[in-house]
Amino acid sequence: MLTLENLSKHFGGVRAVDDVSLTIREGEIFGLIGPNGSGKSTTVNLITGLYAPTTGRVMLDGYDLTTMAQHERTAMGVARTFQNIRLFGNLTVAENLWVAQNGHEQRRAHFLSRWFRAGGERGADIDELLEFSRLLSKRDVPASALSFGEMRRLEMARALASNPRVLLLDEPAAGASLEDGQLLAERIRAVQGRGVTVLLIEHMMELVMGITDRIAVLNFGGKIAEGTPAEIQRNDDVRSAYLGSKHKNEELAHA
């Protein structure tokens, strides 16, 4: 469904993402992991269009997204959350979802009714999404007044407001406890249950290993492994990327 073809992003001499190819299948939860600075967030930014790739292509169902602007990719069905939460703190919870209704179907509404109708933040679709995110009681509260966990839930709800086909979650468990991680796993499964494909970028291994169907591992911008969680856990390259190779440690001991 979502395919990266030989995707690279170089910042000067730094190869943040180097020749990465991936295929994410419709309806699955796909994990993207790797040590700090391995190019995970850059990959997300290449998929959503925040950065233009140096080489390579991003394809969604055979359509080439590479040259599309971000708002066009949203219309194609790509949505994301941010590692450091970026809500509209000056708007209410419901308004945060209201402004995000920019999906393909929503764009078809008449120009005037889409932009210049008051009260749309109380629409049934927004209430449904707030209910889904357990935020209905906070509907008219400014987003800046929410707790950290509520902000994370609101950001995910906002990403879902455009009815995306694929949702990119950039470290949704950052700053969360193990317990929160379990709740998050349920939420991500619920998102999958809505028919949304999920690309999960995450550090919390319990979460990634527990819920993903397949995983790709990045290190120094390149893909070093791809497979089911069980396969990834057995992979030697992945172990050495995370823990340092045994060989290298021995060299250090002798030095």
Binding site: T48, L50, Q70, H71, R73, T74, A75, A79, R80, F82, R86, L87, F88, G89, N90, L91, V99, A100, N102, G103, R158, A159, A161, S162
Partner: peptide, 10 residues
Amino acid sequence: HDEVAAQSIG
């Protein structure tokens, strides 16, 4: 409030 977030939601 936030241009990057505004772009990301389409």
